[in-house]
Amino acid sequence: MSELKDLEITYDKPNWCPGCGDWAIWVSLKNAIVALNLNPWEVVLVSGIGCSSKLPYWVKTYGFNGLHGRPMPVAEGIKLANSGLTVIVIGGDGDQYGEGTNHLIHAARRNIDLTLIVHNNQIYGLTTGQYSPTTDIGEKNKATPTPTVEAPVNPLSLAISAGATFVARGFAGDHKRETDLIVEGVKHKGFSIIDSMQPCVTFNHKNTYTWFYERVYKVEEKGHNPKDKAKAFALAEQWPLRLPLKEGEKESIPTGIIYKEERLTWGDGILQIAQAPLVKQSVEEIDINPILEELK
């Protein structure tokens, strides 16, 4: 049980740029923790490196700020050691779709019961504006002398095909909806990913709030059934584009719960934690004499 004030820290405040999408996700996450009635001490926020990964500093839960691209396996270790915790991974597009993609794929296929929130601003902000794995094709910035010819990573199709069982897209321009998605993602038993579009107001001059407002739509309003995998995949493939847009065309960006599936989680298959989390098991009086005797 928690209230918003329980999640506030008093000695510091976020240092994101005014208007950054990270603010909205920060607020949404705190609202979600309250809405979910979670005890702050039973929540662990694990992050990598980047603007978004600073988020755990400013929420009063347990926090672990690790290395670029590597929060996922740290989070997996935490969850396996103490399955009673709510573990939420915070990362950016560089963190999760560049440096740490391998971990994302494997966490998804294992269906470990944790939630990944990716602050996807399609740019490297903290390093002052280089293109990222999700930068739109055809964009030009300081890391490419000509417009980029690399097709962006499609986080949603990647997650579905890797085996994630809750795949959603949020948008920082609608924090109430982002809150709801986080709530649903955390409630879901299994691997949840919420790809959260989050305009970088300083370095990404293309994918702005206005740009998104003109293109996002809610999949539930089109009657989407998240359990329909083929349809989910088709929706995921709508955006980002792998070819430059033709003259006169405009992107259509689906948001909401794209895909959902019930499947055994990684933890469900581990007999050693069926009775109690590892951390609650006694390590007193470990007797190795029987296994020593076997070596006679």
């Binding site: 396996p73 740290v74 997996e76 270790g77 396996l80 050691a81 103490n82 915790l85 590892l278």
Partner: peptide, 15 residues
């Protein structure tokens, strides 16, 4: 990378 990271995570969680 995952091997050492998971071990760090588990240790952080207390085992």
């Amino acid at each position: 990378i995952s091997a050492i990271s998971m071990a760090i995570g588990a240790s952080f969680a207390g085992v």
